[in-house]
Design a protein around this nucleic acid. Structure first.
Lengths: 240, 240
DNA sequence: TCAAAAGTGTTACTTGTACACCCATGT
DNA sequence: ACATGGGTGTACAAGTAACACTTTTGA
């Protein structure tokens, strides 16, 4: 080993976003087990050490598949977290048990991913996987809370640079109000909903469906869908 | 060691941009020495393994200071490169010599930085440090050529999200044409220079100086400077 | 009939784009 | 005189923002 230089394991951690019926962004968290404290409910971001013949993108895709059962999920690397103090004593102890090996510093590469919240989660690795609204996320190990904070800034940038990834978070059929609520939840800048409506419905890749809402105590809204093929043909930039 | 998981060193590599008098983006490259082949001229991106008590940002800042002698340089992490095949056989051999230790896979975190090209480079670590125009960069070890390719996309995004970092690349006094040429070199989208002129001079943090060009065979252009304080007071978003 | 949200239309304002025109300087 | 780029002005197009008005539905 070369003195003074770190020689360690590298992991990936994934922040998976969903959008719930109450217009809140949610994040998928898994359970961290302490064998000696079985009742303590500890949550963490899904993640994994990187394997020998694996790149970071591969590792993140593997984590996502093990997490949800979905083969191909959109993902985006956004930052490497490597603060020397990011693993607390408790985290180090947990790694001792989890990996049966002593690791005192670990570097992680953080990924963003998006998932329709009504998709069934079928994890092959984790017993417990749950959605948490971003403002209800508990205290997490390592710097996972900080990773989530920064992921919020990142998802905003992502949507600004490619508006259409927003449709990864919506059901196939959606109303313009849903799209508006989601956009507002992410971008945090105010847009007049009527102008938003006009703008969105002017895009030719937003397909107007025949179906409308039912059982609402006001005029029923029309459902729309997103047509990726038409979008790709004339990929005009959208909401700047 | 835990089987199947990588257990390795992590490095940072820095892509430092400069803007030359011929309106080209340049990159700083250092010399890689082969003790057994002293005459071979090998270039690489400046970089370093990460030390024990150092975060990645710290490591990048250290590399930059060792490279240029400048204490604080702007920097931006942009991507972790971890492809299992990124170190060729030759690269592995070089690391054997350089670190006197066998490393067969290495993960790197890539950083962008910006430097006024007329600043004196005073490296405490490298004997040879030179500017290379981006289209004259030779074949480099590891995936350094790919890192540079991706850094070009990244610098474009950076300037779109914060226009004022462009002034890190210009001399303190600059003409609007210089700014225009630089902006064009980075953004690659055409803007009418007259409209650009009008727009730029309308910003109150672009200070019109009394000095003008000399020895030019046309009407002399005025010099301007960038006032960060005024900018920070009313940080309006600029060229979107 | 009323409240709530859908959906359309109108107008004013702001910004971007294209380009004409005059100015200054060295050859 | 003329080529080259500096710098200003103008006119039109396009996009954005504010908001009035009509429609539909359940309670």
């Amino acid at each position: 080993m070369i003195p003074n230089f770190i020689h360690t394991y590298v992991s990936v951690d994934c922040v998976v976003f969903g959008f719930d019926n109450e217009n809140r962004l949610n994040i998928l968290l898994v359970q961290r087990h302490f064998e000696d404290i079985p009742n303590e409910q500890h949550r963490k971001l899904p993640g994994s050490l990187i394997m020998n013949n694996e790149g970071v993108d591969d590792a993140a895709q593997r984590v996502l598949t093990e997490l949800t059962g979905i083969k191909k999920m959109v993902l985006k690397q956004f930052k490497c977290f490597a603060d020397p103090g990011r693993a607390s004593e408790k985290d180090v102890k947990w790694m001792d048990k989890e990996y049966n090996h002593h690791i005192d510093r670990i570097i992680t590469v953080a990924y963003l991913s998006l998932c329709k919240i009504d998709r069934k989660i079928n994890s092959s690795k984790y017993e417990t996987v749950d959605w948490f609204p971003v403002d209800k996320v508990p205290d997490l190990p390592f710097d996972h809370n900080q990773i989530i904070q920064e992921s919020l800034i990142e998802i905003r940038k992502w949507i600004e640079s490619d508006f259409t990834i927003i449709f990864e978070l919506l059901p196939k059929k959606f109303t313009i109000r849903q799209l508006y609520q989601l956009y507002s939840a992410i971008s945090e800048k105010y847009i007049d909903i009527k102008n938003f409506h006009k703008k969105i419905s002017s895009f030719n890749y937003i397909i107007q469906l025949d179906e409308i809402e039912t059982n609402v105590s006001h005029r029923a809204a029309r459902y729309y869908s997103f047509d990726q093929k038409i979008y790709k043909k004339n990929n005009t930039k959208l909401i700047k």
